[in-house]
Design a protein around this nucleic acid. Sequence first.
DNA 1: TTGAAAGCGCTAACAT
DNA 2: ATGTTAGCGCTTTCAA
Lengths: 345, 345
Amino acid sequence: MAISPEGTKPRVRRSSGRITLADVARTAGVAPMTASRALNSPATVNPDMVERVRRAVIETGYVPNLLAGALASARSLLVAVVVPSIASTIYLEFVQALRGALASRGYQVILGESDYAHQSEPALLEALIARRPDAIVTVGAVRSEAGRKRLLASAIPVIETWDMTVEPVDMLVGFSQEDVGRAAADFFFDAGRRSLAIISASDDRAAMRAQGFLAAIRARNPGTEVPSVLIPAPSTLGAGRRAFVDLLTRHASIDAVFCTSDMVALGVLTEAKARGLRIPADVAVMGFGDLNFACDTDPPLTTIRADGKTIGREAARLILERSGATAPTERIVDVGFSVVKRASA
Amino acid sequence: MAISPEGTKPRVRRSSGRITLADVARTAGVAPMTASRALNSPATVNPDMVERVRRAVIETGYVPNLLAGALASARSLLVAVVVPSIASTIYLEFVQALRGALASRGYQVILGESDYAHQSEPALLEALIARRPDAIVTVGAVRSEAGRKRLLASAIPVIETWDMTVEPVDMLVGFSQEDVGRAAADFFFDAGRRSLAIISASDDRAAMRAQGFLAAIRARNPGTEVPSVLIPAPSTLGAGRRAFVDLLTRHASIDAVFCTSDMVALGVLTEAKARGLRIPADVAVMGFGDLNFACDTDPPLTTIRADGKTIGREAARLILERSGATAPTERIVDVGFSVVKRASA
DNA sequence: TTGAAAGCGCTAACAT
DNA sequence: ATGTTAGCGCTTTCAA
């Protein structure tokens, strides 16, 4: 057996060879803890110590290891965000606003994708929990019982968004999807339309909007058959065109169409124009999302705006407040929505 | 000073109270190391040991702490992805494909946003490096010298994408943006168009496409003034409409417009239709991106397709191969692009 | 094949 | 205000 020069047992060495806080501390001539404080809470350290450490950081090219910091402090400064699909444009501004608001406070975002599939939800959540994020934000309610249990067991703050469920796992920022559908139907009725139809995507929240739409119609005219077409996610312009063709073929008399997404509504507009239908004279069209093209289509698209930016910012606010953890924070924020009346309806 | 019952000095306790691998090991009646192996490399452990550990995991509700695992093993299973803007639809499929391919191998994605700003690039990269990702993927070349230096110093594999720079920091997956512009110009010339114009977004890569477009025109007709409009990122339908109006006002004779983004091209189509211009008879229109609406516009949009999915998958492949690290992996992958001829040009 | 020891790089807690 | 000590929860390394 090898014996080291001093006669002691050989030690295992497996340092990564990279610059660590200890190196910075040595260079600055202070204790590692002082270096740590100089970087993380400079106010608690003598200014010229801070300066010496700062210089040492530059000299050594030190970049902190947040993995180690997170492990030691039990704060990862990581927030997991779960979207149904990265490719769905409707949540982009939401993710952007959320990420931006968090980044300014040192948090970073890790991305999960639920693929509109509920069965893999628990596995996805577990993979995210394994990173020990300081919060988990999901688009839509957590549906699976297993998923809810895991979240609860993890004790990580959870924010469900874009929805108004009866029993959130923890916190909630959103609006009632059913009310959106109701508002669309009411709008059409108020505008004198009587033969309403709907083109709905098949995801959870679009289905809820559709449900509200149908409920509002039936509340006025019980037993009405509402012409409707269901299209698979993701919502595309082409799907909207084809769905509208389908609708017109089966129900020639419709005078208003609610689309659960602006992209689909743009498809309807496109198809209408291609076949010489006048919008809104012949058919009124309403979308959902108020995507950035909605105000510039021809005619401009009447739509229902749910402010993703606000949802993102509010979610970030709740996370930050909860991390402060002084008083109990509010648990439910209803950001509402608004009907944006333009020329198409 | 407080003395503990046994007369020893009191110890500091700050366990999080959560279930750890040690708890699982105790429950299974094995050593922590055996539990670790049973979970991470079950092939090296006796099958019934694996079974006992598996049961203990379920019984205890254990969720591994990847923060700790990453620190100990110097593998974070994290990949940082930097996009110019989360809201820009053009990179969505790329991010989705990249994330998907990585997720299947246990990697997770952390999101950075460069905001089309180069000055904050080094700071952004440093924040990402602090997470010790196993790779950093950027959309576009890393421009700042400080950023390149930091990346090099970090020794983290880097993959620049959507570009073909002369000197990549490390690896590169993309295509020549200038060639895209050249291809657009050549396509128009071949179709007999002679008065070309361009509407270009102001981001780096759009500017390169524009440059290639102009270069190809000048190669044929030296000294030509090419009508052009520059629009700020992000590219929207409305910006396209207004730019086209601008173009028509100043140059009535143009017979072809290249747009550096499909969304802008859709704006041109919209404006053309609104003012009774025939596409492509009066003006040919070409976009870039082949976004999912391009095949369903009226008329269908001729565009240049750069396959984001392929770029994402190739980037993932390079990361995985590099992590295997047997033979030196290829450093540059040119995925090319293709002109998708539809009715608009 | 299994286990014991050591330590990844950092910070909380305590001591001065 | 600064330093010392003892881990955070895991895996590498080495020994059996």
